[in-house]
Design a protein around this nucleic acid. Structure first.
Lengths: 155, 155
DNA sequence: TCGATATAGTTGTAAATACAATTATTGTAT
DNA sequence: ATACAATAATTGTATTTACAACTATATCGA
């Protein structure tokens, strides 16, 4: 009884809503990266997408959505601006159902440029929060993602 | 040179993009909460907003946006569905420029119902990730938010 | 082979997000 | 007093997000 009064610091309970806190931080962090990338007309999300296409492409939209932990329909939508800008291209896949997403030469150049900006933003975040704190955050996020396999909580 | 080969584990450097990782986790976590709240026709974001209006209201939209770490225009937009549903109301503020947002009786009932669902979702997350990990995550997020005052990074 | 099922992707709809521009009001300095 | 600046909120526009429904193709079973 009255475990919270105990002098022994037991396993501490989370206060507040994890989702809300995550969103708060996401908003702030996104603004930080976006401020850096705005100069070259890219959103942070677009940089992430472009980077993944560069690193993993050519690959099917579905596979890309899975590794990026996003819905397939979200990927279709997010691909559109990059497609319109000519930074990625979508071609028929081996299978009649699938497509193949790959980066273009223009896209490569854009991504190189963006990568420099991203570096500045990341360094700025590391400096503001402290490298150790950012590392700890990454570790926690990675562990959490590994534990949250798609739709398996509470079943 | 070759610090990474050193047997001494120095301050570890973050790998990858903090923004991308945060977004990945946010997507998963939001899906988890939304799955629970869907039964009563609420999104997690709406639950957070309703809860803040309950706890802090009546208050001005701008003040609400600030405490929730969101843009004022986002708040205006997010308020609309709750207004349409009759869960919150917006009335003229003291100042001719400001408004006053407050929860309605229907909104109170809805929030009570939603709170029970939220509890289930939060408990499920705690169970899936481990209470200690969730607590650690909260702590890191809170510290980070405190360090990331609006638009002061890199200036 | 042909019908049921599974897989891949896109579209309809709706919400969340924020910057820039706009409107309305208040405060201030001459 | 009146023009100018500051503050509060909303609207225009564009992106991010995802569920549900839909289309198209492929696979499998009898």
């Amino acid at each position: 009884m009255h475990a919270r009064r105990s002098p022994q610091t037991g396993p501490q309970l989370p206060r507040g809503c994890t989702n809300f806190k995550l969103r708060q931080l996401m908003r702030r962090v996104t603004q930080h990266y976006d401020a850096e990338l705005a100069a070259i007309g890219l959103k942070t999300s677009q940089y992430s997408l472009l980077s993944h296409v560069l690193k993993l492409g050519p690959l099917a939209p579905g596979a890309l959505a899975r590794v990026m932990t996003m819905d397939a329909s979200t990927l279709t939508r997010n691909l559109k601006p990059l497609l319109d800008a000519g930074w990625v291209e979508v071609r028929p896949g081996s299978d009649g159902r699938t497509r193949s997403v790959s980066i273009t030469e223009t896209g490569r150049e854009k991504r190189t440029e963006a990568h420099r900006r991203w570096r500045v933003a990341q360094d700025g975040l590391n400096a503001a929060l402290g490298t150790g704190r950012v590392f700890a955050l990454h570790t926690l996020i990675d562990e959490s993602l590994a534990l949250l396999e798609p739709g398996d909580i509470g079943e």
